[in-house]
Each structure stands twice: as structure tokens, then as C-alpha cells.
Amino acid sequence: MEKQRHKYSLIKVLRENQAAQGLFLMSPTNIYLLIFIVFPLLLVAVLSFLARGSYGEVAYRFNLANYVRLFDTLYAKILAYSLGVGFGTTFISLLIGYPMAYYIARAPARNRSLLLFLILLPFWTNFIIRIYAWIMILRAEGFLNSFLQWTGIIQQPLNILYTPTAVLIGMVYEFLPFMVLPLYTSLEKIKDAQLEAAADLGAPPWKAFLRVTLPLSVPGMIAGTILVFIPAMGMFVVPDLMGGAKTILIGNLIRNQFLTARDWPFGAAASMILMLLTMAFTLYYTRKAGFGEELLV
């Protein structure tokens, strides 16, 4: 009897089955992923095929109406606009982030940790508070306009706040560190000897940059792009606060459907579309650049 029980014990199975060993060792991760990613995603996916009841509850009727509705001009526009803001944010972050990362990577080793610390410093303050700080800076009587008028560069205050420009500024501000850090990691790995070799073989500095530094920093550019683009697509706080009511992104749409309009199924459908779009972009982008999964490690 005792022996019989032992035959099915977990220990015994693990001792004999290698696949089970792997599965067991990975189980904390697997359970975590199951509870916090797979299960909620399935919930949203199922929800997106249901309908809204008269009182904002979920009616269990299978239908595709939510997805059809997303192709409505109104929503298609929001989607396209979101894509534009996402790409814009990513592109500007790359443009500003690259010189920053390059500077940090080329700074004397003892200064680098301080510079990286400064990049991360804003995260010590709540995001919303920092956005309000930007509102203070950008509004008509804000710091920026006061300063520009004081210097005499402009006579009338610039209307930046509550425009798409303000949204872009806020987004770039928020996501810049996510671009700088992976870029820094890539650039920092490039050895001086590689650049010396390029110079030795007849490449002036700008050519050495184009032929050696830039290609070797592609992994950082891709990682940074992904880290900025994905959250930028779903962002709704910045457009809410800095874009006024005028600028609606898909993130706002989803939030509104869930919290204001109480149309969970439609919000779920919009979420699914957002996810599919970002996934398609990310996969295409990484494959196109000749990198596989190893990049994301």
C-alpha cells in the first residue's frame, strides 16, 4: 500500500520525467503569466464579442458588431491619429534620445552613473504631478511664454497647451528615458578599439559613426522604439490633461468606454485592436531589421 502511493508521488514523477522537471521549475513564472496575462486577456477577448445591455451591463450575446463599429469613420480617425501620435512620439524620442545616450556612453566612466541617475530622477515624482508641471510651463501665462516674451522673441503668447503639440511634448517627456536607456546599453558596449580601427583604416569621425557606431546601436534603437511605441499607443492621461478635450487617442477611447459610457464590450474590442496593431508593428519592425527574439533579452 505504502509502495503504491509512492509510485504516484510528485517527487517520483519529477525524478523520472525531464519534461516535468522543466515545467515544475518554471511553474512560478507560468502561474504568474497565467493569472496576470493569459486569463485577463482571454476575458477581454471574450468580452469583445459580447454586447452592452440597456443599463451598461454585459449582455451575453455573441456578435461582431463591436469590431464593425470600430471601422466607423469616427473611430477609424481616432485610430489613425493614435498611430500618428505613437510614431511621432517614438521618432522624436529617438531623435532627442540618441545624442543623450551617446553623450552618456562616451562620458568618463565615473560620470556615467550620475548621468543615468539624472535620466531616471523624474520617476521619483508622480507622473500626474509632472504633467501638471508641464501645464504650468506651457500655458498662456506659463513659464515658457513669460520667458519668451521677456526676451522679446515673441510678442503674443504661444498657444501650445491643449494642442497636438502639447500632447507630443508630454508624451516625449514621459517616454524619453525608455529610449535613452536601451540606446545607452547598446552604445556603451561599442569598444573604443572599434572606432580606432575605423579611424586607422581611413574613416573620418562622421564616417566611423555611420559605418560602425550607428549599425552597432541598432539593437538599442529597436528596443527603445518598442519600449516607447507600445505604451505611447495606449496612453490616455497626457492627451486628457494636455490635449484638452480636443485630442482623443485610442487610449482615451478605451478608458471612456469602460468608465464613462459603460460599454465594456466595445472598449474590449478597441483594446484588442490596439493590441493587434502594436503587435503587428513590433513583429514587422524587428523582423525587418533582421533581429529575432534575442533582441528583447
Binding site: E196, A197, A198, D200, L201, G202, A203, P204, R211
Partner: peptide, 15 residues
């Protein structure tokens, strides 16, 4: 890059 000498580096420094 303007000298007529070339170097073989200790670490090779291949691209």
C-alpha cells in the same frame, strides 16, 4: 585616418 600606417589591434577590433 590621414596617416599611411595601419594597426593590428591586440583585441583585433574586428567590426
Amino acid at each position: 585616418y590621414q596617416r599611411s600606417v595601419n594597426t593590428v589591434f591586440q583585441s583585433y577590433a574586428l567590426f
